[in-house]
Amino acid sequence: MANPTATATAAIRNASPGPSLRRLLGIALLLAVWELVANTSGTRLTPTLREIGTRIAFDLETGMLWFHGRLTLMLAFSGLLIAVVIGCATGLLMARSRWAEAMMQPLLGATYPIPRLALYPILILLFGLGAAPKVTLVVLECLYPMALGTYVGARSVTKDQLWLARNVGAGWLRTLRDVTLPAALPAMLTGLRAAAPIMLIVIVVTEMIGENRGLGYMLMLARANFEPDGVLAVVAVLGVLGFLFDRLIALLSKLLVFWERGVRM
C-alpha cells in the first residue's frame, strides 16, 4: 500500500532519533573546514569560529541580538500561525469537497513555482513598510507546505473509517475531531516541518530590504560597517534557531504520532 502519510512520517522518524554523535558529525565537519579556511586565508572576510563566538557573546551582552531576534521571531511566528490556520482549513476543505479540490489544486500548482518574494515590492505598496508585508509574505510561503500536508493527511482517512463514523452516528464536527484530524496529523506535522525553515528565510530576507530592525537588518548593518564577524554571528544564530525548531517539531511528531511507531506511550 502506497501510503503517503507513512512515508512522510518515515522521513521524520529517520531524522529524529538515532545516534546523536553521527548526526553532529556533519556539522562538526563543516565547522572544521571553515576554521581551516579562516586560519589559512587570514583575511577579515573569514573570521575564525572563536571570533564569531566572541561577536555573538558581544551582541548578546549589548542586547542587540535579543532585541532584533525577538522582533524577527514575533513576525515569523505570527506568519506561521496564520499560515497553519489557513493552510489546515484549505487542506481539509480540499480533501472533503470535490469542488474545493477541483478549484484549489490547479491554483496551488500554478502559483507554487512563482517566486513570491518578487511580490514583496507590491506588498510594500499595498501595506506600507512595517510588519504587514513581511507577515503576509511568510503566510504566502508557508501556506503551501501546510495546505498540501493537511490535504494529503486528510485524504489518508479511509472510506471504512468514515463509514464507521456514520454507522456510530458521529456528526461532522465529531468526525473531524476524532477521525480526520488524528489521521491527518502525521502529514500535517511534515508540512509544518517544511514550513519552519521557509518562515525564517523569508522573514530575514524581507528584513534585509529597507528595514531598521530585525535579524535581517542586523545582518545588513554589520555588512555596511564591514564587519564579517557580525554578519556571520547572525547567520550562526539563524542556523541554531532553524536547527532547534526542526528538533522541536521532530520531537512533537514523536510524541503526537506515537501510534505510527507501534509503541505505546
Partner: peptide, 27 residues
C-alpha cells in the same frame, strides 16, 4: 446508516491512535 445495523468491515477498522479500550468506548 444507523446504529440498528452494526457494520463490521473486512479489515478491522480500528483507529490506530486510540487504545483498544478507547476504540470500543468511542461509540
Amino acid at each position: 446508516p444507523g446504529r440498528d445495523r452494526g457494520m463490521m468491515f473486512q479489515q478491522a477498522t480500528l483507529f490506530p491512535w486510540k487504545t483498544i479500550e478507547s476504540n470500543v468506548a468511542w461509540p
